[in-house]
Design a binder for these strands. Sequence first.
DNA 1: CTCCAGGAGTGTA
DNA 2: TACACTCATGGA
Length: 205
Amino acid sequence: MIKTLYQMLVEEFGRLKWWPADTDFEVIVGAVLTQQTRWDNVEKVIARLKGAGLMSPEAMSNVPVAELEMIVKPAGFYRQKARRIRHIAEYFGRNPMEEVFMLPDKVLRSEMLKLPGIGNETADCILLYAAGKPSFVIDAYTRRMCRCLGIEGDYHELQEMFEAALPRDLYVYRQYHALIVEHGKRYCLKKKCESCVVSKLKGIF
DNA sequence: CTCCAGGAGTGTA
DNA sequence: TACACTCATGGA
């Protein structure tokens, strides 16, 4: 029997607890803060925001950007990110999250894309981890993995490929994304690719 | 010291 | 459509 890539990754990494957060708003803020930035760096900022009582649309939208910048600094790109999460806070201050999340998936996605600082990947992270919509996330690690398999394509082409091959299931999408990132952090650096499960899969996928 | 991390926006050809 | 450039701190 031929194992799927997903099964092989599960065997190696098991169940992964992914994107721990107390609230959906925290997921969204974290999604923006982690852009091109290590997660452990983002954790400091999230802790600071919580400590300052700012981890809510209402509270954050009333803080001077300058003050947010100081808090966001450890996550890098602090000037843009401070402004962007504040803008997002204002948006959800005007539009209650429960209502926004009730929009049809595609409408919700394009709605998120309108917000400055939210591109394809961040939008899908919001859908998948905050709104609970099965939208497959394509990140840098996913692209590298696909390249290893000889698969090229833009964001939507790769996303369509995964979604067509998988059951449209929230848990599967979340786990697969988590597994790919975990795999990538372990192997997709410094030419460690030779020993990873993806390399064993060439010609089978 | 160098390199780069779970991107996005803008400008140019 | 396809790149190049910018944003920025902190850890290996």
